[in-house]
């Protein structure tokens, strides 16, 4: 007797362009062990036919590494923003609903425009000011391995935007810069040379839409696929910015 092939049922929210109306299409993909959402979308690419047998175009989405380090394939899966490559079908309730993370402008289908996150890294001065890539005949300062461990945790942030989508205060009508770039400011403040620009970073975080727009929903820390302790760093920066704000109020 032929075994009935187990199917995985997808309901995908599609959109042809930034200003088009969203619509849904349903797909079925053959089940196999360790199947994930990206692998399923790849199957749909090979045979772009809906559940009802209607020929359609392949779903558009963004992905690169499929190892949860590049951050590209973030989308909303069953209501929660996450990396599609690491979303195993076995762990998801069916039908699996995919939609773009609408906190960001939609490009097409599940592909979104996250350029705002990279722009934010400019705002918060997200780099260490080195004189140049040339030799300076001088070692970089030693670092306390414990501080370095915290820095490593934050520097694993892959700018995927899960925290941004989860945060109620990040949206297209708010200026809030969001959790990811805030934590990055803390990362550079932790570095012995990066610390020289701490004041500039904190000032940037005190501008409109900065740190103070955080509403403590704390979704970010739950949503972060890299388990970065975002709320803790936000609280630490709250302390730092308060100090600096008071200082500049009285000292200048």
């Amino acid at each position: 007797m032929a075994e009935i092939k187990k199917k995985v049922h997808f309901i995908i929210e599609r959109q042809d362009g930034p200003n088009s109306q969203p619509y849904t299409e349903e797909f079925e993909v053959d089940y196999r062990p360790a199947l994930n959402v990206v692998a399923s979308l790849m199957e749909i690419q090979k045979n772009p036919v809906t559940k009802d047998g209607k020929k359609t175009t392949a779903v558009v989405w963004e992905c690169n590494c499929l190892e949860k380090v590049c951050g590209a394939c973030m989308m909303v899966i069953n209501g929660k923003a996450q990396q599609a490559c690491a979303a195993l079908i076995d762990h998801l309730e069916q039908p699996i609903r995919l939609s773009p993370a609408r906190t960001f402008p939609v490009i097409r289908d599940l592909a979104i425009d996250r350029s705002v996150m990279f722009e934010s890294l400019k705002k918060i001065h997200g780099w260490v000011d080195v004189d140049g890539t040339w030799e300076v005949h001088n070692d970089a300062p030693r670092q306390n391995p414990k501080t370095a461990t915290i820095a490593y945790e934050i520097s694993r942030c892959m700018t995927c935007g899960c925290c941004m989508d989860a945060c109620p205060n990040v949206n297209q009508s708010s200026e809030f810069i969001g959790p990811a770039p805030i934590a990055q400011a803390h990362l550079f403040n932790l570095h012995p040379i990066g610390e020289y620009q701490k004041e500039e970073r904190l000032d940037a975080l005190m501008e409109k839409g900065g740190l103070a727009s955080c509403g403590n929903s704390q979704n970010c820390v739950q949503a972060c696929p890299k388990d970065i302790k975002l709320t803790e760093y936000i609280a630490k920066l709250n302390r730092d910015t308060n100090k600096q704000a008071l200082k500049s109020l009285f000292n200048k």
Partner: peptide, 9 residues
């Protein structure tokens, strides 16, 4: 949290 009184989880 806003005033940085508590930071850790």
């Amino acid at each position: 949290i806003t005033w940085g009184i508590v930071t850790g989880p």
